[in-house]
């Protein structure tokens, strides 16, 4: 059987969404960003909202997200994406606005913008990629770096006595009255990908229904920064990141209570 006999439209079971551009991703092979990008774009395509959605790219590994996400995009200064998103959403209240941010951007330099956008209940969606490290700049310690975890600026491991503790932003924003939906997921296995996509969909639906700020964290690997193979990094993530950053829906104002 030739390959041409297999690749036929009727045999297609998966197709890249047209809301991802043809530009090759700039992310390291094995990194979770590619899947996270795809899920956000698939949700926007499936909801039919692509022509009224504006994405805000951060500074960090996903600084070039606007090159890959095939919708209107703005590139924000480091940490300021929630403020930029607020500015857009307030003047285009019937459009969909989301930010896509890493841990350095969202949980260090942009902490104030993140907390206040959440607390105001800005009707936007925040997608937060947490890999516990500054990937873009070469693997420095992030606000989410685990205790004892090595990075180029914590080469002997994060010493919480002198370097402070990792910040659980997702639990923190879940406490704020302005957030309507807060969840933490991963994208390293098919089952987790499915759960993540469901949550992203819910986040955008809540935005559509003007319920407040929806916040989805994706705990991801950084095989380059962690200096591991992709497979090892995913295993390390399961063993070390997940116990500290447990997965699941943390807050859902519409959840049916039993």
């Amino acid at each position: 059987m030739n390959i041409e006999d297999i690749i036929k439209p009727e045999n297609l079971v998966f197709k890249k969404t047209g809301l991802l551009t043809e530009k090759p991703l700039s992310y390291c092979p094995g990194c979770g960003h590619g899947v996270a990008h795809r899920l956000v774009m698939e949700v926007i395509e499936e909801m039919g909202i692509e022509e009224k959605t504006i994405g805000i790219a951060p500074v960090g590994c996903s600084v070039l997200a606007y090159e890959f996400m095939n919708i209107d995009m703005q590139q924000a200064a480091h940490g300021r994406a929630p403020a930029v998103a607020t500015g857009v959403k307030r003047v285009l209240p019937d459009h969909f606005v989301f930010t896509y941010q890493g841990d350095g951007d969202l949980a260090a330099i942009g902490t104030a913008e993140t907390i206040h956008a959440c607390n105001r209940g800005e009707n936007i969606t925040i997608i937060f990629i947490n890999n516990g490290i500054y990937g873009m700049t070469g693997g420095q310690m992030a606000p989410t770096t685990l205790p004892g975890m090595r990075s180029s600026t914590s080469p002997y491991g994060r010493d919480v006595a002198s370097m402070g503790h990792p910040l659980k932003m997702t639990e923190l924003v879940a406490h704020l009255p302005g957030t309507c939906y807060v969840a933490r997921h991963a994208v390293h296995t098919p089952a987790n990908v499915t759960k993540t996509k469901k949550s992203i969909r819910k986040a955008f639906e809540y935005q559509r229904d003007k319920k407040g700020l929806s916040f989805v964290e994706i705990v991801s690997n950084c095989n380059s920064g962690w200096k591991m193979t992709p497979v090892d990094s995913n295993q390390w993530m399961e063993e070390n990141m997940f116990p500290f950053y447990p997965l699941g829906v943390i807050k859902d104002i519409d959840a049916k209570t039993k």
Binding site: A76, V84, A112
Partner: peptide, 26 residues
């Protein structure tokens, strides 16, 4: 007209960036 008190001047100017990027008088 939208009037919003931001959490800082840093947030204000970045809100301006967002709304101005949408072509609005900001």
């Amino acid at each position: 007209m939208v009037v919003l008190q931001a959490e800082s001047e840093i947030a204000s100017i970045n809100m301006v960036y967002g709304a101005a990027g949408a072509g609005k008088m900001t």
